[in-house]
Design a protein around this nucleic acid. Structure first.
Lengths: 118, 118
DNA sequence: TATAGTACCAACCTAAATGCTTGTAAACTA
DNA sequence: TAGTTTACAAGCATTTAGGTTGGTACTATA
């Protein structure tokens, strides 16, 4: 019945639609939400950036959303938080190596999203 | 001030974080939501599939969600709906060419999502 | 002492996404 | 003619994401 073809697996062994989390859905959840991509893009474009500088660059974001999104991105290993105990306090955020491997994939997605509009 | 480097642009001209929609965010919105990826995976794995077959394969999906997700995917050009006026009515859904170009990108995302867990 | 800057947190509320239940049309089948 | 199957749709409830407001702790500078 089921013919085993040499297709690219989207779920690495598990067949989607899966009950347990597949890595694809996991990845999309990590970068999902309204502010994650703008944050990643800002850090990608400008390198290490301070909290308030991010607030100014990302139009419309609130303290609540920026702080919680940064926390989640840090917990997921996508960004690195470095605190300098100066006065006043300085905190810088930057992309990690994991995220740099993600960038070209997002680039492809962006190109696909551009094409599909035509 | 701004040094023009030869980085991959994620937003094709516009600099994220952007006020207007960038193609990357557009792409993520199209494939976002709880059921879009399971639907695409099911159609990718099994080819043209009927409505009720999708319901059985995708565990936990409701009629409301399946019907509305299919409609959105069709409106966005990701799936093709074909109706056969037999008795009883038969409707089949399948991926379009646009979606087939998306598959390898999702494969990369999946691989990245798998790696990041370690 | 007063003011201002930095990096956040917490409580509350709204709006959007998702879920549940029931209903319907069309056409065969017994 | 009643029942069955298929592919949905409408209405309402619930859950979750996101937004608003206001505040904290620390320290420097005037």
């Amino acid at each position: 019945m089921t013919i085993s073809e040499n297709k690219t697996s989207l779920c690495s062994g598990n067949i989607c639609p899966c009950q347990e989390k597949c890595p694809l859905s996991a990845a999309l959840e990590i970068i999902g939400g309204k502010w994650k991509i703008p944050i990643l893009c800002a850090l990608y474009n400008d390198g290490p950036t301070r909290y308030n500088a991010l607030r100014k660059k990302i139009k419309g974001v609130t303290n609540t959303m920026l702080a919680s999104s940064l926390k989640e991105l840090e917990a997921d290993g996508l960004i690195l938080r470095t605190q300098y105990n100066e006065m006043p306090l300085r905190v810088e955020y930057e992309l990690t190596k994991n995220t740099n491997r993600l960038i070209p994939i997002l680039g492809s997605l962006s190109a696909w999203g551009k094409d599909i509009k035509n």
